[in-house]
Amino acid sequence: MSGHMNLTLKVWRQKNINDKGQFVTYQAKDIADDMSFLEMLDVVNEDITRKGEDPIYFDHDCREGICGMCSLVINGRPHGPKYGITTCQLHMRSFHDGQTIVIEPWRAAAFPVLKDLAVDRTSFDRIQQAGGYVNINTGGVPDANTIPIPKRVADEAFESATCIGCGACVAACKNASAMLFVSAKISQFALLPQGQTERYERAQAMVDQMDAEGFGNCTNTGACEAECPKGIKLTNIARMNREYFTAKFFRQEDIHA
């Protein structure tokens, strides 16, 4: 059968949003290497529960890397030591017997810690609400094949649209910047013909909201791109900048009303 290991976990525990919080050490015993990281936490939580203590709260849902709910900075890396996956897709075979694992929540002013490892990411929703949509109502739209979209453009838009909104970009960025997240949505609509109508207003509105939420500024380190579980590219940020500056310097005066 597969290998088993014993691990030491240093986990951030924080009772609620107002609590100061501290690290607490737990032992994870007899962990199988084909467990997922979250299953390992489940096992630890079952132990904690049996002792009558409060289990570690962490966000998770689909456990197949698509809902974007799971988070965790594991040994200094968002979503753990592997690239291109979420925490729920991380398996214990990436660790070794006797290892100490430090588990922390996403850290950003715009992502306050709610409890233990769970943070409040509604700032991301508010950015989307500022302009991450096409202004159309249900019904009354043209046939889906009315506007052909070159495959390469559609594919590029898809690549941007695969963002799962987990926040790893913010967590990885030394400046806690959300620009990769914001730019992915701006890019998707900037590329597609359906997004053209409010293209420039969208870029401005979403950037404004991003600033208002208190995210940091991009310094182009590329950490977000490296840690993004969906491989969202830095070119999106360049595109966002282009959209924003075009809006500000060249488009605003087009309308004199």
């Binding site: 096409v134 739209v141 889906a144 838009a157 649209a161 998707q188 359906q194 997004g195």
Partner: peptide, 13 residues
């Protein structure tokens, strides 16, 4: 399908 395309859903093409 019409609705989703109009929303900017990037279906395969």
């Amino acid at each position: 399908i019409d609705q989703c395309v109009a929303q900017g859903v990037p279906f395969a093409r």
